[in-house]
Simulated assay, not measured.
Amino acid sequence: MTGRPMSRRGLLEAALLGAPALAVAGCSGDGGTAWQLRLATGAPGGPYNAFGKALAVQAARTAPRLHIAPLSTSASVDNLRRLGGGSADLGLAMADAAEDAVRGRQSFSDRPAVTALARVYVNYTHLVVPAHGPVRSLRDLAGRSVATGATGSGGQVLAGRLLRVAGLTGERAVRQRQFGLAESVEALRTGTVDALIWAGGVPTPALSTLARDLPLRFLPLETEADTLRDTYGPVYSAVTLPAGVYGLTEPVGTIGVGNYLLARSQVPQQAVQAVLRVVFDRWRELLREVTAGARLEPGFAVATGNVPLHPGAVAYYRSVYG
């Protein structure tokens, strides 16, 4: 995108253009409204699944009229399709996949009617190879076997774009293996693949465990971060894996991409506000198993790019800003 960035108030005003929501509610025991929402997360053991389970637990503890049922899925792309088809009310997705959906790009020609509640944290791209192997740069992967994420995941979208901007296509194409995180880690451990590409929080526990068993090299991606941003827009940014995680002795530059908490446009405004109250009241518990050291603040959360904020989210953030 070009032009001057919008102010926070401008973002909120623009979000009011979203469609009005319909009711998805029942009755609680005391006669009040009880919201029952299905949340599309990710594969068991992954960060989206952990976030979704934590959100359901915290909602049950602090918002008795809000009932959230986490659904195990293939993650971002799958979640966006579920939201569009109505089999989920809430969902998590990486920002690049969400932007594709609202713009009708790639596999989203039907443009699912999704809206954003918040940008909740940033994924860090991990390009991981055995430390003592022959691969020392992204371009060394030509012709090799690479775990690029599960089918239907946002990580697979990012991996595909990363390989394209690096020129790893045609005769130089890698052999992509569509593995989820657990399968990718085991494949790298056993030598079934030469590298894995994963986008997640820092540290990712499965990679921390692998690093204790197998010396790893995390390949730098600073140049590719700039190229992806120039090619696909500001959903991509340059971030740094800090020294100390995974046994790194110095920082490694890589690619950052946000994760959005999304909702169908038909979810009622009051339900969205109830969800966001739990998210902002209990963010420490929600992010504890997802990404270390992250902090969720409204100024960060409201930056959802071309994905419009749900009207209920607009109302919530206005109550925060005054």
Rank of each mutant, 00 (worst) to 15 (best):
T41A: 12
S319F: 02
D100C: 08
V157Q: 09
A69T: 15
V146N: 00
L66H: 05
S74L: 13
R139A: 10
Y246V: 08
L286N: 00
D110A: 14
H132S: 14
L262K: 02
S208W: 14
A199W: 01
A303D: 10
R61M: 04
V279S: 05
L55I: 07
G143K: 03
A150T: 05
A23M: 13
S184N: 00
P47L: 07
G201T: 04
T223A: 13
P251Y: 02
S184C: 04
L158G: 01
M6E: 12
T192D: 13
G244Y: 14
L117C: 07
T2R: 12
E13Y: 09
G155W: 11
A303V: 15
G200F: 06
G322L: 03
R189Y: 08
S153L: 07
I197A: 03
G32P: 00
R318L: 14
E171N: 12
L181V: 09
W283D: 10
L276D: 11
Y121A: 01
T231H: 12
P64Y: 11
A69S: 15
E13G: 14
G160T: 13
S28M: 10
V290W: 08
S184R: 02
L241A: 04
T192G: 10
A43Y: 07
V129H: 02
A238M: 12
L127E: 00
G86C: 03
A211Q: 09
Q270T: 10
L80I: 06
Q270K: 11
G160Q: 15
R38Q: 08
A25I: 10
V235D: 15
T227E: 15
V302R: 04
V157R: 06
T169C: 14
G253F: 05
S107T: 15
S76K: 11
A88V: 06
R111Y: 10
T254W: 00
Y246L: 12
V272D: 06
R217L: 11
E222W: 09
G85A: 13
L309Y: 10
L188T: 00
V120F: 04
G167T: 14
T254F: 00
G305V: 14
E13M: 14
F108I: 04
A88N: 01
I197Q: 04
R229T: 09
D226N: 11
A301G: 10
T227A: 15
A294T: 10
I197E: 00
F218P: 00
I197G: 01
G180L: 02
V314D: 02
A173I: 03
G244P: 12
S237D: 13
G155E: 05
V77A: 07
R81E: 09
H310A: 01
G133D: 04
E250W: 13
N306I: 14
N49H: 15
G200K: 05
S28L: 13
R103K: 08
A98Y: 01
L66E: 04
R189I: 03
R65Y: 08
P70Q: 05
A195W: 02
E285P: 02
G143M: 03
